[in-house]
């Protein structure tokens, strides 16, 4: 049994038939080939799979593809505009906010949501805003720097 869904992914309309139990993250990664969202756990705790659904940061391992029917989804692949990196992508590069990069797409999209809500966060607010995303490599120091860099560029 499948259900039909229609959604917008990175600005493009997508129509698909999916198994009702198919996770959104698998739909994006395997059916659409958008492998930027990574999977690091099965308990909604690591944040590696974070994407934006209608502007909200969502862990795509915790949502069914069927639930995304009618939604507008942004993945890391859709963040750069006209070949220009998003200031957060730039900030992570500039400030060495990533090492292995596995957490990075989710981290950047969570930070994107944070900056939408609070364009000039303090260090503490950045740490509060990103606590749903785990990074095992960076010790977070440069992630804080990267988000501050982006916030300054965006303001």
């Amino acid at each position: 049994m499948t259900v039909s869904i229609q959604l917008e992914v990175n600005g493009k309309p997508v129509q698909a038939e999916v198994e009702p139990r198919r996770l959104l993250v698998h739909f994006l990664r395997e059916d659409l080939g958008l492998t930027g969202a990574n999977i690091g756990c099965e308990t909604s705790l690591c944040g590696a799979c974070t994407i934006l659904v209608d502007g909200n940061a969502v862990k795509s391992c915790t949502m069914l593809a069927a639930q995304a029917d009618g939604a507008a989804v942004t993945t890391i692949e859709g963040l750069a505009r006209n070949g220009e990196l998003h200031p957060l992508q730039d900030g992570f590069w500039e400030k060495h906010g990533l090492q292995c990069g596995y957490c990075t797409p989710g981290m950047i999209l969570s930070a994107n949501y944070l900056l939408e809500q609070n364009p000039s966060p303090s260090d503490e607010e950045i740490r509060e805003g990103l606590k749903g995303n785990i990074c095992r490599c960076t010790g977070y120091h440069n992630i804080v720097e990267a988000v501050k860099y982006a916030a300054e560029r965006m303001s």
Binding site: R29, G33, G36, N38, I76, E77, W93, L98
Partner: peptide, 24 residues
Amino acid sequence: TSIKRREDPALITGRGKYTDDLLV
């Protein structure tokens, strides 16, 4: 010198391919 990492452009745009990303 702290030159920026050449690894990063692929990783910050979701183009880096980890093992589970490989679909054959």
